[in-house]
Design a binder for these strands. Structure first.
Lengths: 205, 205, 205, 205
DNA sequence: CATGAATGAGGATTCATTCAT
DNA sequence: AATGAATGAATCCTCATTCAT
């Protein structure tokens, strides 16, 4: 139990530092200095620096997946409108990202230039978001909610990028006291007209 | 003249390697081995590794600005429609990014975790794209082309992210023989309905 | 009593590992993992890693001395021939070494490159074997059994080396089902002609 | 050319230190301090500590092989007696070992407990000596010089061990001003009676 | 200008040993 | 006595940068 706490302490500190300085500029010495433990202690819990990083991401991914799953549990799939459903997806993801700005920062980096194995690991979240969007699109097409003309994969990519970017934008404009709901609406309003069929959109007004 | 050629050789090689491996994993030894010059020679042209990186980006930025400027030169501002203008911006940027996939890759990384000064430098392109979009929005609002309801800054961010992401998407799906025009249309079709006023959109059909 | 058993457990395990991997490559963690005790427990019985090693050797040395002593107890010094006596020495030593191949391996290493104090400790067995041989030679010379011409110290060194080497050779050729007696004979037959006087040798046939 | 000299400097120093302290206790810092170069310089010539060690041994092995080869070149194989031939082998090897006491010390260690790959490397010399002896025995048997009764492999092992041990013994008794020739004779006199047939031995007197 | 050997600060990782429980 | 988490000194190796030729 004590050990688990320690591990978490290291992970939390590492997350903060990785988010601020990236992988290379964050040194084990920074971590141990910050939380006042010995160098070796880190290696009692993690094989190496990379493992800390991966562990961090995997924690985040499983949290995100749970959040997505839980969000859908709470709603009535029978009565929700397609646009509301879209909105829910966006909001759930934003809630998640904004609840953990450091992970948000880390994932936004897309892992460019990281050691071999880590690159893929960091790109996973964006891929997961994209894949969920893609899947939703397929369902929507089948039900006639989504415009036949769109390239679903490309659209999903753009939406994933925009959502991540919005989270990032939100972090850096917090002074405006912007509500997550407002941000969500802005995303929905920007994309909905290009995604949904006229029928779906008409029902909105 | 010979010197200038050498400098360019170094820059080209560095660009390729930075794009493939990022800043930290690219070593001076990699560069000199690749182009068969001596270690010291690099330092005849650049103060240090960071300067190579910055130089690279600045080259790219000025090329992009020129491209944007040239594109507008060629058109008749009087007769072009707002959507066509939007489309032109997108296409110009995509043309530029796809003509130089390495820079595209570097910029996509957003400089996360780079040495102090470089972070800002890498984020510049996305900012530039966003700022142009923002500026266009202001003009468009003034002329009644853009919906009053949108948050222009946020929308500009999202569009910038989506365009960069599209370039990236394009690289990795080249096998589909997708035309830049098609990609451009997909972007325009996704965003236009959410951006432009009903009047502008009506004129399309 | 329980404690004594534990100490022995540690020693046995350490012997096995030291024999397989040497001093440096054997880690305390290897030992405790193998016998399922806690790290700290080792230090209840031994001051440090070196002490385990020394303790191991000393155990071996006293066993060897007892073996040598016992062997002589059992024979009739009056009637034994010089060659038979030589043979007995060799066989006793081989019996001892082959009964404990791990110690054999450790001693064969001659302690090269070990931490300061241990070098001397590991060399002791070879020295002991050599010294016994040397002493026997002196007796033999006095009784006219040993050729006057030989350099007893040098010969003793070579015999000690050859016996240790034979033990090692035996380990690695066990498949041949070679008997210790056969190995012993081979050693005796190789050395006896060069060591003993013609008189002693003549009595053999 | 300058580089080759540096490499040799490092090798020489490393040999001295490895011989004195073994592999593990010899640190790169020891080497660079001793010959007054920078840490990194070592790694310009060798990938790592192990490579220095291996390089050292391989140098020694090729020198030994050359010595063995040259020695046979100089003699008249027609007229040399079997015992003289045996003597020549011993002397050549002793000359070689005593000309380079550090290598002698390193090889004597038999690599026990070294990192994986190095163990085998250090054992090579003893094996090479043994193999040459073994080969000579086979020739000798065929010509009726060697007693049919001996186990050639085992005898070769013992002789190799004894020769190496003699070299070691010689190092530590130098004060006696012992000549290599004398040591060689002692080895020959100890082993010859046990190895050669009565005919060959009779011809000696 | 070009070279490439030399530099050495810097960082990750290991592992024997300690000590509070 | 036993535990095992914590310690931190020790060590290998990297790599951007310099500088004499």
């Amino acid at each position: 139990m004590k050990g688990e706490k320690r591990k978490q302490l290291i992970l939390d500190c590492a997350k903060k530092l990785f988010a601020k300085q990236g992988f290379y500029r964050t040194q084990i010495s920074d971590i141990v200095r910050e939380i006042n433990i010995a160098r070796g202690t880190v290696y009692q819990y993690f094989a190496n620096k990379e493992e800390i990083f991966i562990c961090l991401l995997e924690d985040a991914y499983s949290k995100w997946e749970k959040a997505i799953y839980d969000a859908v549990e709470l709603i009535n799939l029978k009565t929700i409108t397609p646009v509301e459903y879209f909105r829910l997806r966006i909001k759930t993801t934003l809630d998640f990202l904004l609840a953990d700005p450091d992970i948000c920062e880390i994932v936004m980096s897309m892992g460019f230039g990281l050691p071999e194995g880590l690159e893929k690991a960091t790109r996973k979240l964006e891929e997961k978001i994209r894949d969920i969007a893609l899947n939703d699109f397929k369902l929507g097409l089948h039900n006639g909610y989504i415009r036949e003309s769109i390239n679903t994969l490309h659209a999903a990519e753009m939406i994933a990028a925009a959502v991540l970017r919005s989270a990032y934008y939100f972090q850096n404009n917090k002074k405006e006291e912007k509500q997550i709901d407002k941000i969500t609406d802005e995303i929905v309003n920007l994309f909905a007209p290009g995604i949904f069929t006229a029928d779906v959109l008409a029902a909105l007004s």
